[in-house]
Amino acid sequence: MLLTSVIIVLREVLEAALLLSILLATSRFMQLRTRWFYASLAFGVVGAVAYGNNLTAISNAFDGTGQELLDAFLQFAIYLLLLLIVPLMVINHHRGAYKRNLLQGAMLVAVAFAVLREGSEVYVYLSAFRTQPDLYSSVMTGALLGAGIGFSIGALFYYLLLGLSRHYTLLLAGILLTLVGAGMCAQAAQMLIQADWLPAQAPLWDTSALLPEGSLPGQLLYALVSYEATPTPIEVIVYSVSISLMVLLLGFTHYVSRSYRQNLPEARAH
C-alpha cells in the first residue's frame, strides 16, 4: 500500500511542484510579487476538494465522459496559459516591464489549474481509504513520503533555477515549460481519445520493454514530460505541434523584442 501511495502522490505532487517552482523562480527574476501564489495554491486546493467531492456528477456528465473532458480542458488551458506566459517572460526579459499584470494573472491561473487537477486525484485517492482504518496509516505514510520527495525536488529545483545566471534560468525555464506544456497537450489528447472525441489508433511504437511506464523512473518521466511508452500517432502529432507552436512563438517574440532593444538607442537619438 505504501509504495502505491508514494507513487500516486509523488507523481501528482511533482507535476504541480515543478510548474510552481519554475514560475516562482522566474517571478523572482522578473520581480513580480510572489505572495499571490499562496492565494493561487489555496484556490487550487479548494478547487481540488470541490472537484473530488463532485466527481460522481462530473463523471456522469457528457454521457459519462465528463471526467475526461474536464481533465482535457484543464490541461489544454494550462498549455494555452503557458503559450502566453513564456513569450511574455521573454519580452519582459528583453525590454523591461510589459503587461506584467497579465503575466502574473496567467501564472496564477496556471498554478491554480495544475494544483486543482493534481490535487483532486490525491484527494480522491486518500478519501478512498478513510473508511479503511487498518490501511490508512500505511497510505498516509506513503502519501507523506511521496509529498516530501515531490516538494523537496521542487524546492531544490527552485533554488537551482535561482542560482543560475539570469540568462540560463530563462532558457531552462523556457525549455522546461515548453516540454511541460507539450506533455499537457499530449495528455489532453489522450483524454479526448479515451472520451472517444478523437479516433483511437494503434500505437506508433512501444518502449515499454526499455522503460516501463509503471516503473519509478517511468512515473518520474511521466510527471516531467508525460512519458508514454505506447503513444498513438495523434498523441505524437499533438506533442510535436504544441512544441513547434511554442518554439515558433518564442523565436518570434525573441527576434522582435531583441530588435526592439537594438533600435531603442537610435529611437532616442532622433
Binding site: 513520503l145 523537496s152 524546492a155
Partner: peptide, 19 residues
C-alpha cells in the same frame, strides 16, 4: 528549506528502497 529538502530526499528515497 534547502537542507531539509536534501535530507528528506535522501532519507525518503533510501527508506523507500529499504521498504
Amino acid at each position: 528549506v534547502a537542507l531539509l529538502s536534501t535530507i528528506i530526499l535522501v532519507n525518503f528515497v533510501s527508506a523507500l528502497h529499504g521498504y
